[in-house]
């Protein structure tokens, strides 16, 4: 039964961790890009854009990530389009991440005092110029800490991709458990690796938060 030594288990988990990291990174970056577009729509002067953005955000925040994964993986297949676990996980995580980031960033934009809008408006800035030169640079500073903090959720969110057969850390753990029957060892290691990924992120986020508070 124990053909698999501790080191082999760990080695295989670490190899699978690469996919967890890669999926997290890709989801975070593409979620960030879509999230930025959503944010701009959410705070724009155009009512239709705002409503569309709110609808999107509510939809993806208000449904479980797992359902979103199922819909992209199984749902799309019903229309005869073959979706690989990779693509389904990437798309679902992108939609999910973008919804949360847009909402976090909206809070940052709205925390900029009204006087900043009025001062730039009085200097004849257009809305776009206000955003680009006055509001977003300030919002960005406030946004760094909660954004890094949210990246922890993205890393943990990738674990759900295991259910549609994407072999990342959790899926590798399940497979190793199936052949070794040592669930406590395997899943402890899986949990430790997630912790090793997430802890530095949340620690860094806390540190950034502290640094910003001092500056104010």
């Amino acid at each position: 039964m124990s053909d698999f030594s501790f080191w082999i288990i760990l080695q295989n988990l670490l190899l699978a961790t690469r996919w967890t990291i890669l999926l997290s990174l890709i989801a975070f970056v593409s979620g960030g890009i879509v999230g930025l577009a959503l944010l701009l729509a959410r705070v724009s002067h155009n009512r239709a854009l705002r409503i569309a953005s709110i609808g999107y955000i509510e939809l993806f925040q208000g449904t479980p990530l797992l359902m979103q994964l199922f819909l992209f993986f199984f749902g799309v297949a019903l229309f005869g389009i073959e979706v690989s676990p990779w693509i389904a996980a990437w798309l679902a995580l992108t939609f999910w991440t973008s919804a949360f980031l847009a909402e976090i960033w909206r809070g940052c934009v709205e925390s900029i005092p009204k006087g900043q809008w009025e001062a730039s408006e009085s200097l004849a800035f257009s809305y776009g110029e206000q955003m680009r030169y006055v509001i977003l640079p300030q919002a960005l500073r406030i946004a760094v800490a909660p954004t890094v903090g949210f990246s922890v959720q993205v890393v943990k969110g990738t674990a759900l991709a295991s259910i549609i057969g994407f072999v990342e850390l959790t899926k590798a753990g399940t497979m190793l458990n199936n052949v070794t029957f040592r669930p406590f060892l395997v899943y402890s290691l899986v949990a430790l690796i997630y912790f090793a990924l997430c802890f530095p992120l949340s620690w860094y986020s806390k540190r950034l938060e502290g640094r910003l508070n001092v500056a104010r």
């Binding site: 900043q116 009025e118 004849a124 300030q138």
Partner: peptide
């Protein structure tokens, strides 16, 4: 607004 300047009570400088 290019012809009308405004100064505010709270300064509202870009920090």
């Amino acid at each position: 607004r290019r012809h009308v300047g405004m100064v505010f009570q709270q300064f509202n400088l870009f920090p």
